[in-house]
Amino acid sequence: MAYREFVSLIHKSTKRDYLARVTERDKAEVAELAIKFGYDYWDGSRQTGYGGYRYDGRWRKVADAMAAAYGLKPGMRVLDVGAGKGFLMHDLMEAVPGLEVQGIDISAYAIEHAMETVKDRIVQGTAAKLPWPDQHFDLVVSITTLHNLYLADLWAALGEMERVARGGKYLCVEGYRNESEKVNLMYWQLTCRAFHTPEEWEFLFKKTGYSGDHEFIFFE
């Protein structure tokens, strides 16, 4: 298991007004909308989610870094757990032509509005039960998804990533290292169910048998 910095390449490019998330509108109300992972979350206002999740090419940096780190080659299989609209999948296919990329996401809305290049490669489902056989993928990745699960499903999802991978594994989750980052995370998040320090995340990895790489993003 190694600490990888892929999402860190783009995470700090987004400006965040933490206080606005809790003062402009009732936080519980907007969280209830966001957790449906429908229009409000993906393409509604910034208060309820992304404020319009559109492809802008930023994930290509992440795709290139992953391709280099894991030695991705044409014909290899990659799974994106929590694929959303498929931006990373698209960029991985462009970074490594001939790569066999698949994705899974809980959001029917995201899949319906996914990029045309990958829409037919994304299935609707949960990270806690992946519909693929053991050791099917050369690389399994999950970015800012698993912290949205309650503990039982989170535990299962970590085991599922381990099960379907025959090669590399990488995940990125939100975390906090101090009280300031904890408060910022609680202010900013809309769908998070698992609030853990890096040490707590690493404890979960060990207990569930997850042996892949990981990365944490913090709200400084």
Score class of each variant (00 low, 15 high):
Leu151Phe: 10
Gly71Ser: 07
Trp188Thr: 00
Gln189Asp: 15
Thr144Phe: 12
Asp17Val: 02
Ala114Trp: 02
Val101Gly: 12
Ala28Trp: 10
Glu199Cys: 10
Thr145Arg: 02
Ala83Gln: 09
Glu100Asn: 13
Glu32Trp: 01
Tyr70Ala: 04
Leu154Thr: 04
Arg177Ser: 14
Met186Leu: 09
Asp138Asn: 11
Met89His: 10
Arg16Val: 15
Glu160Arg: 00
Arg193Met: 15
Leu99Phe: 09
Ala156Phe: 02
Leu99Trp: 12
Ala28Leu: 08
Cys192Asp: 13
Asn184His: 15
Asp138Ile: 03
Ala20Val: 06
Ala63His: 07
Ser8Thr: 13
Val7Tyr: 15
Gly52Lys: 14
Gln135Trp: 00
Leu33Asn: 05
Trp59Ala: 09
Lys206Gly: 10
Ala157Phe: 04
Ala65Thr: 04
Gly209Asn: 05
Arg54Tyr: 13
Leu185Ser: 13
Leu9Cys: 09
Ser13Lys: 14
Tyr109Gly: 01
Leu88Ser: 09
Pro133Cys: 00
Pro198Gln: 12
Tyr39Met: 01
Glu215His: 05
Asp64Ala: 13
Gly168Met: 07
Ala31Thr: 03
Val123Asn: 05
Ala194Gly: 07
Glu24Tyr: 10
Ser45Ile: 11
Gly84Thr: 04
Asp56Ile: 00
Leu158Phe: 10
Gly212Cys: 07
Trp201Val: 06
Ala83Met: 10
Gln189Trp: 03
Glu29Leu: 04
Glu202His: 13
Ala2His: 07
Ala157Pro: 08
Cys192Leu: 11
Ser45Met: 07
Glu160Leu: 01
Gly49Trp: 04
Ala31Cys: 14
Val7Ser: 07
Ala95Lys: 08
Glu179Met: 08
Tyr39Gln: 11
Ala128Tyr: 08
Glu200Leu: 03
Asp26Val: 14
Ala156Asn: 09
Glu179Trp: 10
Ala20Cys: 05
Gly168Lys: 05
Arg121Gly: 05
